[in-house]
Design a protein around this nucleic acid. Structure first.
Length: 570
RNA sequence: UGGGGGAUCGUCUAGUGGUAGGACGCAUGACUCUGGAUCAUGCUACGGGGGUUCGAAUCCUCCUCCCCCAGCCA
């Protein structure tokens, strides 16, 4: 399941767990939970949390529950529940029979609330939402007590029962904890525990018309499940006193809440709200668009679960706000795919090449290695014939310095094929575009070796025209042009930083025949180009590939350096 | 001007009184039938001022900057 780094860092949460294990704080137990709200798709920030919670449980011989935090029926849907389960499973984690819902505990939560009411620690408030807000005070001004704060217990009990019974309209009453309206921590100024919501819940239907708030529900769910380490993100830090307060008052089992910094990535946004906007405004096709930082997006893009897990381990866990360079993620997917993706030759922007001295009807099957990193992956045969396609980018009529590829009069190697020399360039009379190359081949160089040992720096990928399969290839780039999408001149917002070229669709790509019938989701390295994955849109008629990530491109760097030098920049 | 957190290479992260380390990135070189991969070498950091100490990223102190909180969202 989980691959653990040979020397994972002893980050502060591991340290806490090890201390707790030593002092036997929880009888040697480690019990965590991943508690998503089913109101959207999971993104890579959630992956960090999933890897943390399931990973820690695994490392320390504990268990991790999957628990849906479904306390707000107005925003939650089964569709999200299903996608979340799929994503967690895909990442490689297993909650076994421990699939829980906060809604499983609604009755018990209610009983606990009644207990607090009976003890005079909670009361029904009948102020409007606006009034409650006003009474709460501000960051610097203390709040005021509600006129209903000192209702007799019996009245509170009666009102609360009738809230549950559905006697009141939404918004007319709430149940609040009686804590401290003057607290510097706003969460402690008599937080709302229940609100009236006449809404159908995706699991409990119409059984309830009052729903618990996060702060009230979360700690109790953790307590009921016997969670030891309740890990959440930094913004809940000042909810911790409240988390503890409820558990103390009820005198129930107390887990501890631990907060860590959420993941931010360059060149993308990470909040569900913003991701939803990208979908709604048509900037991407859907939640699983390969440009999205969602887990389903990465999956469709061709990322492996292992690459994401390795990434999540490497970025570490701390309390400092941070933004990880997306190139680190790209490093991990390259590293993984380099070892496991079979190599194949595909030409994205075809340029026709005729080998004038190669026999018209001859076809040779040439042996190609499937993965130089893994001999066990074997070999395959690739057809070679007189008319081929090569990449347009691999030919320059006017080659710059350090150009190893094809140019008039230059000789290059066709990978696993022959050495060819460019003899003639055919152009479109009107546009001047190069439409075809005429080359000659050296029959002595079959397979890509020359008996005289002459040096050929450039090796090109190619596909035999007669045998090529047509394919559509979708190239992706960062969703946002700037590392920080929020970095904009005042007035506008992150949408102005959207990369207009984040997706490019290439229609008549030529791929080698071994790709016939490639299954959706299968991943390949297109030699010299990058890693590609068969998209679900793919069919027997049209193969569709997504570019997961490019290969490192040293030539692009050299050329860029040459250009900046030429333009006088340093 | 309330409360809660946080500051170490460009980025992420170790280090918890004893030479500031790793990864990504970047640069250079070697190798190569992928300008891929691999290997080698190099690059840059303790927010600031005082103090304690033989010795401070670490301890004390003052300051600065950044993040979160005023949902009947989570």
């Amino acid at each position: 399941m989980t691959t653990i780094d040979p020397a994972p860092s002893l980050h502060f949460i591991r340290r806490i767990i090890e201390e707790d294990l030593e002092t036997n704080k929880y009888d040697g137990r480690v019990m965590t939970r991943f508690p998503p709200e089913p109101n959207g798709y999971l993104h890579i920030g959630h992956a960090k949390s999933i890897c943390l919670n399931f990973g820690l449980a695994d490392e320390y011989g504990g268990l991790c529950n999957l628990r849906f935090d479904d306390t707000n029926p107005t925003k939650e849907e089964v569709e999200y529940v299903e996608s979340i389960k799929e994503d967690v499973r895909w990442l490689g984690f297993d909650w076994e029979d421990r699939l829980y819902y906060a809604s499983d505990y609604f009755e018990q939560l209610y009983q606990y609330a009644v207990q607090l009411v009976q003890e005079g620690k909670a009361y029904v408030d009948s102020l409007s939402a606006e009034e409650i807000k006003e009474y709460r005070g501000t960051l610097t001004k203390p709040g005021r007590e509600s006129p209903h704060r000192n209702r007799p217990v019996e009245e509170n009990l009666d009102l609360f029962k009738r809230m549950r019974a559905g006697e009141f309209e939404d918004g007319t009453h709430v149940l609040r904890a009686k804590i401290d309206m003057a607290s510097g921590n706003l969460n402690m100024r008599d937080p709302v525990m229940y609100r009236i919501l006449h809404a159908e819940h995706h699991r409990t239907g119409n059984d309830w018309c009052i729903y618990p708030m996060y702060d009230w529900a979360h700690g109790l769910c953790d307590s009921i499940e016997g969670i030891t380490h309740s890990i959440c993100t930094l913004e809940f830090e000042d909810h911790r006193p409240l988390y503890n307060w409820f558990l103390e008052q009820l005198d129930v089992y107390r887990p501890q809440q631990i907060e860590f910094a959420r993941l931010n990535l360059t060149h993308t946004v990470m909040s569900k709200r913003k991701l939803l906007r990208l979908v709604k405004n048509g900037h991407v096709r859907a939640w699983d668009d390969p440009r999205m930082p969602t887990i389903s997006g990465f999956r469709r893009r061709g990322y492996t679960p292992k690459s994401i897990r390795d990434f999540c381990e490497r970025i570490g866990v701390a309390k400092k706000d941070s933004t990880v360079d997306i190139r680190l993620l790209e490093y991990y997917i390259r590293e993984d795919l380099n070892k496991r993706a079979p190599r194949v030759m595909s030409v994205l922007r075809p340029l026709r090449v005729v080998i004038d001295n190669y026999p018209e009807d001859k076809v040779e099957e040439l042996e190609a290695i499937n993965n130089p990193e893994d001999p066990a992956m074997g070999k395959r045969m690739v057809p070679f014939s007189r008319v081929l396609y090569i990449e347009r980018d691999d030919f320059r009529e006017d080659p710059p310095k350090k150009w190893f590829r094809l140019a008039p009069g230059r000789e290059v190697r066709l990978r696993y094929g022959y050495y060819i020399t460019c003899a003639d360039v055919v152009k479109d009379e009107k546009t001047g575009d190069v439409v075809e190359l005429h080359c000659t081949y050296d029959p002595e160089t079959r397979g890509g070796w020359s008996p005289d040992g002459r040096k050929v720096r450039g090796t090109l990928h190619w596909v035999s025209a007669a045998h090529a399969l047509e394919a559509e290839v979708r190239l992706y780039d960062h969703l946002f042009i700037k590392p920080d999408p929020e970095d904009e001149e005042d007035g506008s917002d992150f949408e102005v930083n959207l990369n207009p070229n984040s997706m490019e669709t290439l229609k008549s790509c030529k791929v080698e025949p071994s790709l016939t019938g490639a299954a959706s989701g299968s991943r390949y390295q297109f030699e010299r180009l990058g890693y590609f994955c068969v998209d679900p849109d793919s069919s027997d008629e049209t193969l569709v590939f997504n570019r997961t990530v490019t290969l490192r491109d040293t030539w692009a760097k050299i050329e860029k350096a040459q250009q900046t030098k030429a333009s006088g920049k340093h």
